[in-house]
Design a protein around this nucleic acid. Structure first.
Lengths: 244, 244
DNA sequence: GCAACTTATCGTCTGTTTGACGATAAGAAA
DNA sequence: TTTCTTATCGTCAAACAGACGATAAGTTGC
């Protein structure tokens, strides 16, 4: 039976989760306030060490549950990228596997005194440098936002920010918040509804809002991904963000 | 001074490299024949353990150099995805960070008796199941090929498979090999040369080949990425692969 | 040298898609 | 009832993709 080399270097491994949502027409990220050193008092991405017997995705889901109180993954979770192990943590080398969660606005746990307090923060505030994140989390956040932006172009994942049913205008608001642009409502409506295999009409309408009632849509069956499965790119041709 | 928790789990970490190139109009992957257990005698992706004091990219470059003899990274190297740590290796849990190299056809080291022999293998043969790869490398290869295919659509990375200078036909052969389709030479020529910021004419021509001499192009300055930097997507609108 | 062949490059034509924007529909608010 | 707001449908021109003809400029065979 083969064994690992005796002098084999082993590394602590963490998972970090960049949970993005759209609140008040702005892209928000879920951040915790660190209660322990290092970076005590600083904002950081939720995450933690991978335990023995865990896979990466499992660890990400567990950490998310521990720090926000959600029972089920509330949106689309995918692996982003790995960072390290050098120079990330003053305690020593740590490899981190960052994950990206695109989710509807969900309530975060109001933690007790000894737990880390999670809260949604506007991404713009963080990227503008108003608050400095712990570790290399600012860089991870930048990569995550860029990934989210490009995913919206050629995948149906914009709908991951909405609930089960949504209007075209709500979906458009997602694109506008993530891309930081304004989109023409009429052209967006045409593209979203005219792409076979993207949305399907539920037959129901909104009521009570200002303006004309809107039709409610859901993701078409072929655009929904089973948990952990890659999303089939159904936006063909893609919905390009305005370049300028 | 903060320290890591005493009971902290640590994992061996490897880097694996999916080196892709185009040879004889087919997509090829660099594979080694394993000389040690586990999976002795099986084909596997080049790679190895991350050493103390190394970052992920450094480890990937070192392993590539050790197993192929290249001195410099011969193409575009980027991180693909991480896998594990469970159920990948009979010796125990290992986390691997897969990397993707898109490179021109480069000669691989003809190793001596005790080194692992690297060789280019047609990706089609592997995916068809003619040879079984060690570990979960077949799955990693599938993910890498899919990443390469989609990268060609909206990034200038097709040129990473060519040398410094290349003709439109050579670039088209790359797209055809990676996508496994035929493309109309005239429409491809129009798209490749008509996209500002993608290619620039060197002013030089091929000589000696069959047919009319072709103009030699290189990647435009704005489409070249500094080492390790993300590639700016300059194909706008993208060059979509035929869907069917 | 000359015809045949090969490959590169330029054009044309048609259907599709985008971007800009007018017009109408259908509710709530005043 | 009028006004306001938002949803949805149309229109039009420019850009673009896919199919394919035509020509240019080499090499190869004879």
């Amino acid at each position: 039976m083969a064994e690992f080399p005796p002098a084999l270097q082993r590394f602590p491994v963490t998972v970090d989760i960049v949970a993005l949502t759209v609140r008040d027409n702005a892209l928000n990220v879920l951040l915790i306030t660190r209660l322990i050193e290092p970076f005590r008092g600083r904002l950081a991405l939720p995450g933690g060490f991978v335990l023995a017997g865990e896979d990466l995705g499992e660890a990400a889901i567990r950490e998310l549950a521990e720090e926000t109180g959600v029972e089920q993954v509330p949106g689309h979770l995918e692996q982003l990228q790995s960072y390290g192990p050098q120079g990330r943590d003053p305690r020593g080398d740590v490899l981190t596997v960052a994950h990206l969660l695109l989710a509807p606005d969900f309530p975060v746990l109001s933690a007790g005194s000894d737990a880390e307090q999670a809260a949604w923060c506007p991404v713009g505030d963080i990227l503008a440098g108003e608050r400095h994140l712990a570790f290399d989390h600012a860089r991870i956040l930048v990569d995550a936002v860029e990934r989210a932006r490009s995913k919206l172009e050629y995948s149906p994942l914009g709908a991951a920010f909405c609930g089960e049913e949504f209007t075209i205008a709500q979906l458009r608001a997602v694109y506008e918040a993530v891309w930081g642009t304004r989109l023409d409502p009429r052209n967006f409506h045409r593209k979203a509804t005219g792409n076979p295999g993207f949305l399907e009409d539920t037959g129901r309408m909104t009521t009570g809002d200002a303006g004309r009632p809107a039709a409610l849509f859901r993701l078409a069956a072929e655009a929904r991904s089973a948990a952990g499965e890659p999303v089939r790119a159904v936006l063909n041709p893609p919905l390009m963000r305005p370049h300028s």
